[in-house]
Design a protein around this nucleic acid. Structure first.
Length: 306
DNA sequence: TGAATTTGACCTGC
DNA sequence: GCAGGTCAAATTCA
């Protein structure tokens, strides 16, 4: 038992380090972008493709490592059906809304849910809008735990919540635990512009963002969806599709609206083929072949892993 | 003035 | 009975 806890703790550390590495690489990319070393629109410097490829490889290494760890980190102990069942039983206890009003606190307490965690030096902006609904002092922990729910809990019935806890051993670190998945269709500022069709970069994907690091506002853009829709060539259309599909945030639990759940067991990029191949631990039909023109490279790089 | 946060009370699971 | 999760009134903020 203790070994398991140690393993989990060690993996958390590794994930934290990888996240930091990816973050630093992103910062480097941002700096290069600002200095003009990587100019996707006016790329005449012969060193630029090399630097860019290096950055891509670094970021890909971090991402793949995180994916691998994350794939083993998801704690979906209970099926959606079981969750629904338990929720139904709880709902049945709340007879009517009038009673609920009288019985303050008649709520669905989360018993076991699908969770995933993230540690970062500061609370991460995962692109979703959260509203704080509680703060609690936890036993033997100096720092209070903050409770957040999705802003669209009531207007869209989004059940996603998260808890943010400063880590006692390292107060600079914040551990964010996510519960449930977003069913709302609102994501902030997913300014993803896909420029994969650049004639001078037929084997690369180029992206630019209106938003600047470290705001990871596109994390939940679900390139893991089956992308059954026709490929889009317009970046604005791409953004809309992202908004439409954020009901399926990648690493987290399987979305209810998708027949293709996204517990990845593997992910490979093939620039020459412009394809991202996603392997799922689920049924064979869940193996996804997704045209890269539908997927932004940085969607992968900014997943809320761990 | 509406939205977000704070905070004590309430409720559930163990 | 205790600890933790959620509610909702009060308060603060933009």
């Amino acid at each position: 038992m203790e070994n398991i806890e140690n393993l989990a703790h060690g993996r958390g550390k590794v994930i934290g380090e990888l996240l930091r590495g990816r973050e630093l690489a992103n910062q480097l990319r941002h700096i290069l972008n600002e200095s003009g070393d990587i100019d996707h629109n006016n790329n005449t410097d012969s060193t630029t493709p090399y630097a860019e490829n290096l950055l891509k490889e670094v970021l890909m290494t971090f991402t793949n490592s995180l994916l691998f760890l994350n794939n083993n980190n998801l704690t979906s102990d209970v099926s959606d059906a079981q969750l629904a069942k338990s929720e139904d039983s709880l709902e049945s206890n709340c007879k009517s809304t009038s009673i609920v009003k009288e019985r303050r606190g008649c709520y669905k307490r989360r018993k076991v849910s699908q969770t995933w965690e993230n540690e970062s030096e500061k609370p991460v902006d995962d692109g979703h809008q959260w509203r704080k609904y509680g703060q609690k002092k936890i036993l033997h922990i100096d720092f209070p735990r903050n409770y957040y729910r999705c802003t669209h809990k009531y207007d869209q019935g989004c059940k996603a919540t998260k808890q943010v806890q400063q880590i006692q051993e390292d107060p600079l670190l914040h551990k964010t635990t996510y519960y449930g998945h977003h069913t709302c269709s609102a994501i902030q500022n997913p300014e993803i512009i896909v420029d994969s069709l650049s004639p001078t970069h037929h084997s690369s994907m180029f992206l630019s963002f209106d938003n600047s690091f470290p705001t990871p506002t596109k994390q939940d853009c679900p390139f893991l969806s089956t992308s059954s829709h026709p490929s889009s060539t317009s970046s604005s259309v791409k953004r809309e599709e992202c908004k439409e599909e954020i009901v399926n945030p990648p690493p987290p639990p399987p979305p209810p609206s998708s027949s293709h759940n996204d517990y990845l067991s593997g992910l490979t990029f093939d620039d020459s083929e412009k394809h991202v191949t996603l392997s799922s631990t689920l049924d064979s039909h869940d193996h996804l072949g997704v045209n890269i023109s539908d997927i932004s490279y940085d969607d992968v790089l900014n997943w809320p892993l761990s």
